[in-house]
């Protein structure tokens, strides 16, 4: 039974909202119950941004994730400090170690350190760091099938963003391979 509660957090512009929406879309395609709730308001303008995504086999009550996240995908240090405590015991932290030197202070959760920006730069565009982390996260949890994830990536990078599809697919694979 899947009941995954994910916090995606980072600086505005790092693509945490899109990362969350990609999980959301893949979950919907797969017929799961899903919800996505963003932070909003002035803090979005250059400050920290985060969204809460729930993928579940059961109907979702509240889309709010307070202190019961099963996973957190963390792209910058302020987000690690803010959200580390909200992950349940036995949960996961996927940390962008390119930008965060600090290690998790929790011993009761599993932390994965992914040099997402370094990999993204290797691939040719630092902006795909979010997809590297997404690849790692989805490989770790296996909550969604590859087919659904591919559909979601195609959806996320279509239209004016279509030129970003290939590099994001590559970023996704690299992220997945790191933890596979």
């Amino acid at each position: 039974m899947i009941n995954e509660k994910i916090i995606c957090a980072g600086f505005g512009g790092q693509g945490v909202m899109l990362m969350g929406q990609t999980i959301l879309y893949a979950g919907m395609v797969e017929g799961k119950e899903v919800s996505w709730l963003p932070s909003y308001g002035p803090e979005m303008r250059g400050g920290t941004a985060n969204c809460s995504v729930i993928v579940s086999d059961r109907p979702i009550g509240s889309p709010v994730i307070s202190n019961n996240a099963t996973s957190a995908i963390i792209m910058n240090l302020p987000s690690l400090i803010k959200f580390e405590k909200d992950v349940i015991s036995g949960g996961r932290l996927v940390i962008n170690s390119s930008l965060i030197e600090k290690k998790s202070s929790r011993s009761d959760i599993k932390a994965y350190y992914i040099p997402a920006n370094d990999i993204a730069v290797e691939l040719g565009n630092s902006r795909v760091a979010n997809t590297v982390l997404l690849g790692a996260y989805l490989k770790l949890t296996k909550i969604l099938s590859d087919t659904s994830i591919m559909k979601a990536l195609h959806k996320a990078f279509s239209g004016t963003k279509a030129h970003m599809l290939d590099i994001n697919m590559a970023a996704y694979e690299r992220g997945a391979d790191l933890v596979g």
Binding site: W36, L37, P38
Partner: peptide, 8 residues
């Protein structure tokens, strides 16, 4: 919350 969230 209702205004900002997404669900199918």
């Amino acid at each position: 919350m209702i205004g900002q969230m997404m669900e199918p």
